[in-house]
Write a protein that binds this DNA or RNA. Structure first.
Lengths: 196, 196
DNA sequence: CTGCGAGTATACCGACCGGTGTGGTTACTT
DNA sequence: AAGTAACCACACCGGTCGGTATACTCGCAG
C-alpha cells in the first residue's frame, strides 16, 4: 500500500493505461484523473516508467486472485470459463501482451514483470494439470490455448474464442479413445490413462 | 505500388512501426529515415493513420506469401516450423496484435485490417486442416495454438513456444492411440491415416 | 512552350510530452 | 515548538507531436 494520493494515482493510471495504452496516456492526464498533481506523482513514483511497472505488478495480483477464486474446486479446463468471465469486463485483452507491444525490447523496468507473469501462468497450469493427473505437456497446451483465446477474443474480435479453446483443451486432456464419446467428458480427477 | 518516394516512406514506416510501435514513431522520424520529407508523406498518404493502415495491409501480404511458400507440400502442423522460422527474424511478434494493443477500440482505420487478418488465418487453417482430413475443430485448435505460440515466444520470452505448440497440435490432430514419448517426438507423420 | 505531378527544403503551428522547481498548507510526531 | 511527511497549486523547461504553408526544382506529356 502506498499513501492515499499514491493509491489514487495507481488506480487512475491503471485504468487509463489498460484502456488507452501506455504511450497514449500522459502524466498530466493521470494526475488530473486521480485528482492530484503531477508533482505528487513524481514525489511518489519518481518516473512514469516506474508507475507503469507498478501498474502491471498490481494487475498480476488481481488476475491471480480472480483466477484462484473462480477456479477453486473446478477442473483445470474450466480455466476458459474463467477467462471468458474475465474478458467480459477486461475487454482490452491481456495487459501484459499489450504492454509488451509498446515497451518490448527497450529495457523498460516493466519488462521482467511481463515475462514473470507468463512464466507464472505456465507453471500454474502445469501444476494444476498435474494435480489432476494430466502430463506436463497438457499444462503447456492449456497455456498456449489460453494465450491464443485471449488474443483471438480481443484483436481477433471473436467473443467465442475461450469456448473454442475449451473444446480444444478437452480434446487434449481427454483424448477421444476412438469411438465412444462416453470417455471424453469433464470432471473426475482420477484418469487412468495419465501416465508419467 | 506507390511513387518511389511513397514506397520509401512505407518501407521506413513499416520497419519503424514494427520495431518500436506506432505511437513511439513520429512522422518526422519516418520522413527522415526514408530520406524524404514530411511534406511528401502527407502529399502521398494524407495522415499518419492512413500510413499505419497501409503498413498492416502490406504486412498481411508478406506473411501470407511467406506462409504459402514454406508450407507448400507439407502437412498443416508444420505451420509451427514456419512460424519459428518467421519469428527468427520477426522478433517483435505479431504486428497485428501489437497494433491492436495501441489502437484497439479507437475507431482507427487500421482496426478492420487487424480483424481481417485474424479471420483470414482462421479460415486458412480450417481449410488446410480439412484438406488433410481433419475436422473443423482441428483447424480452430491450430489457430489458437498458433496465436498462443506467437505470444509466448515474444512477450513470454520462450523461443521454444512454437515447438511446444507443434507438439500440442500433433496431440489434437493425431489423437494418441497408444500414446508414448511425450517429450522429443516429432517427424514420422506419414499421415495416411485420415480420421473423421 | 506550357502545365503538372512528384519531389525537396525549410519554417511554422498549437498542443502535448516527461520532468522539475517554488512555495505554501495541513496533520501527525518527537 | 520544531520537524517532517504528504499534499496541492502553479509556473516552467526543452523537446516532440501530427499537420500545414510557402517556395522552389525537375522531368515529362500535351
Amino acid at each position: 500500500m502506498s499513501t492515499p494520493a499514491g493509491e489514487k494515482l495507481i488506480a487512475a493510471a491503471s485504468a487509463l493505461f489498460y484502456r488507452h495504452g501506455i504511450r497514449a496516456v500522459g502524466v498530466d492526464l493521470i494526475a488530473e484523473t486521480a485528482g492530484t498533481t503531477k508533482k505528487t506523482l513524481y514525489d511518489r513514483f519518481g518516473s512514469k516508467d516506474a508507475l507503469v511497472a507498478l501498474y502491471l505488478e498490481r494487475r498480476t495480483g488481481i488476475w491471480r486472485e480472480f483466477l484462484h477464486e473462480h477456479l477453486r474446486g473446478r477442473p483445470v479446463e474450466d480455466l476458459f470459463d474463467v477467462l471468458a468471465l474475465w474478458l467480459r469486463e477486461q475487454d482490452r485483452g491481456c495487459a501484459f501482451v499489450n504492454a509488451y507491444a509498446e515497451i518490448g525490447g527497450t529495457g523498460h523496468p516493466a519488462e521482467p514483470v511481463i515475462r514473470a507473469e507468463k512464466e507464472w501462468m505456465r507453471a500454474y497450469l502445469v501444476d494444476r494439470a498435474r494435480e489432476e493427473g494430466h502430463p506436463e505437456s497438457a499444462g503447456v497446451a492449456l497455456h498456449l490455448l489460453y494465450e491464443g483465446a485471449t488474443v483471438l477474443a480481443t484483436a481477433g474480435g471473436d467473443p467465442d474464442a475461450p469456448a473454442r479453446a475449451k473444446a480444444s483443451a478437452l480434446a487434449v486432456l481427454y483424448p477421444p479413445a476412438d469411438q465412444q464419446g462416453e470417455r471424453g467428458q469433464q470432471h473426475q480427477h482420477d484418469h487412468g490413462l495419465a501416465q508419467r
